[in-house]
């Protein structure tokens, strides 16, 4: 495993050693060693089933880990899950908004639970919604929104309390290029102010344009990690770097039977 170049002297936002999470007999995380410096946009990439979403859930304290050690913002996700939940924003791979409520109702009520005063929450929500949601989407039931709009609404809920650490599981899934660009620019500005972003994605061009650090995950283990420049340096592109690191070549079948 490569090492991460620390960009500041501040303690790491996320640090884990030998992290293991099992589902039955399958090790979703298998001795994961990882360190995310504060203020970084750390992108985890890898094939399906590599353990990316599990890593997000373990770091957020949503599922416990079985072995190893882990601190997120200096807190143990197993022991301090409640305190941690107040200090992070999460867009996980499952719905976290009530279907029958609109994004406005969802976000304002969740903000209230987090202790944000109504007017302030409304101001933040309007600003975020203007940037990300189309007209009318803010007040339509979540169930009636497109998949992309649902993801964006979840992003609003994750950001409304201005957490210093954001976990985004596939933030660009189903998002149109215009919104994706807005999200990218927004995250870049936040990171410039010291916010740390941990994201997983299969959309490698966006990862290349946004991430400061990259980790390549396979079978629950980090097989390459470092700054984006370090990881991409020899390969020329992130896609090539990932394919080379994973050692996979094209195995597309010819499908000789598939003739119109």
């Amino acid at each position: 495993m490569g090492t991460v170049d620390g960009t500041t002297d501040r303690p790491a936002a996320i640090r884990c050693r030998g992290l293991t999470r099992r589902y039955g007999t399958v090790n979703a995380l298998d001795g994961l060693d990882l360190e995310v410096p504060p203020g970084a946009v750390y992108a985890v990439i890898g094939p399906n089933g590599a353990g990316k979403s599990t890593a997000v859930k373990v770091f957020c304290g949503l599922v416990p880990f079985h072995d190893g050690a882990c601190t997120v913002l200096g807190l143990d996700p197993r022991r301090d899950a409640v305190t941690l939940a107040a200090r992070i924003g999460v867009v996980p791979d499952f719905p976290v908004l009530f279907d029958v409520l609109s994004p406005r109702e969802n976000v304002l009520r969740l903000a209230r639970i987090r202790g944000i005063e109504g007017n302030e929450a409304g101001r933040r929500l309007d600003q975020l919604a203007r940037a990300l949601l189309a007209d009318g989407e803010l007040d339509r039931p979540v169930a009636a929104l497109s998949n992309g709009a649902k993801r964006k609404a979840m992003l609003l809920a994750a950001m409304i309390h201005a957490p210093p650490l954001l976990f985004l599981d596939e933030p660009f899934e189903g998002i149109d290029p215009f919104s994706a660009r807005t999200i990218r620019e927004m995250l870049e500005r936040l990171c410039a102010r010291g916010v740390t972003v941990f994201l997983t994605s299969h959309v490698l061009p966006f990862v290349e344009s946004l991430a400061s650090h990259v980790g390549i995950l396979s079978s629950g283990r980090l097989i390459a990690s470092g700054t984006l420049d370090d990881v991409v340096a020899e390969s020329g592109s992130l896609e090539t770097a990932m394919l080379e690191t994973l050692g996979t070549s094209s195995s597309a079948p010819d499908l000789e039977w598939y003739t119109p």
């Binding site: 200096g74 107040a86 944000i116 302030e120 210093p164």
Partner: peptide
């Protein structure tokens, strides 16, 4: 970075 801003 580690300060809680706007949330309690």
């Amino acid at each position: 970075v580690h300060a809680v801003s706007g949330a309690r």
